[in-house]
């Protein structure tokens, strides 16, 4: 079931169309990657989902029904541009923001104490925010985002400003939240984290969705049918078989050869492998699956050239 859906959402600013009939489907309990180059319209879409701005036309469906104002209590949002009150004490500030998200003072206090203890940051409670390092502030902001246990979490570039150790910690937390049944929208430029975390993606470029779907499915759509094969140099030489495969490149390494081949359409991997096995002694056989990074760059530059 889709927890959140947008249908043909359009947003027009003075002389710039920010979103052009954008439809996305975010399945419940999954991590959804919202990808796209800078200025593509991601932030506008996130703001519409947060009810910060209203769409000019189109629908947003939340939990299977039409979006309602009180649904914002079910959303936790970590914006790309982080910010908190610099002069306010950390604990006081967190309680205030949690109260604004609908928690009672007592409830906010109990939950915050639990999270602060979990992250081992209890001594920061009475410090002013400006006394903390940037990484520490990010942790506080993360806690504030999830404190009211919203069903939908939106993280905009969550890893920026974190060192690798804390980024790992955060990744673990995000996956734990997913396991606990939260639906997560994850907006980022960091494609390796998309592959690790996301179940589904939508790629927005120039105000439109240009690619969407399940990560594995999207990747298989971008299969090139190229393979890299390594074999012992002495065991024979690879000859192309026109109806099965063609050779792309050959490289001799110390004692082994590496050959890139292109498989003809309609041929199964097993057929290819048996044909190859007959010719030489194979060490490894790898399909060249494009990374999300390649898919991102190809799709974005592809749509840019066709539209230009």
């Amino acid at each position: 079931m889709n927890f959140l859906e947008t249908e043909d959402v359009v947003k027009q600013y003075a002389n710039h169309l920010a979103l052009n009939k954008v439809s996305i489907q975010v399945p419940e309990g999954k991590v959804f990657g919202l990808l796209g180059p800078n200025g593509a319209g991601k932030t506008t879409l996130i703001r519409i989902i947060n009810r910060i701005t209203a769409p000019d036309s189109g629908l947003v469906r939340f939990n299977g029904r039409e979006f309602r104002p009180e649904d914002i209590y079910q959303i936790g949002y970590l914006p790309e541009e982080r910010g908190l009150y610099k002069k306010m004490k950390v604990g006081e500030q967190a309680i205030y923001l949690a109260q604004l998200k609908g928690l009672s003072y007592q409830e906010a206090r109990t939950r915050l104490t639990r999270w602060f203890e979990k992250f081992d940051i209890m001594p920061w409670w009475n410090k002013k925010l400006e006394e903390l390092s940037k990484g520490m502030q990010q942790k506080i902001q993360f806690i504030i985002t999830i404190i009211h246990e919203p069903k939908l979490l939106i993280f905009d570039e969550p890893f920026s400003g974190f060192d690798p150790v804390n980024a790992e910690l955060l990744k673990k937390e995000i996956l734990e939240l997913k396991d606990a049944g939260h639906t997560i929208i994850f907006s980022t430029h960091n494609m390796s984290s998309v592959e690790e975390i996301c179940d589904n993606i939508a790629l927005i470029n120039r105000s439109q969705v240009v690619l969407s779907g399940n990560v594995t499915e999207v990747k298989s759509r971008f299969r090139t049918n190229n393979f890299t094969i390594r074999f012992h140099t002495g065991s024979g030489k690879l000859q192309p078989i026109p109806e099965l495969f063609s050779l792309l490149a050959e490289k001799d390494l110390a004692g082994t050869s590496e050959v890139r081949i292109h498989k003809e359409p309609g041929i199964t991997n097993s057929d290819l492998l048996s044909a190859l096995a007959g010719q030489t002694e194979i060490i490894s056989f790898t399909e060249e699956i494009p990374s999300m990074n390649d898919i991102f760059i190809n799709t974005v530059s592809g749509t840019n050239t066709t539209q230009a």
Partner: peptide, 8 residues
């Protein structure tokens, strides 16, 4: 902080 505030 405005974006956090405005979302609630």
């Amino acid at each position: 902080i405005i974006e956090v505030m405005i979302s609630s």
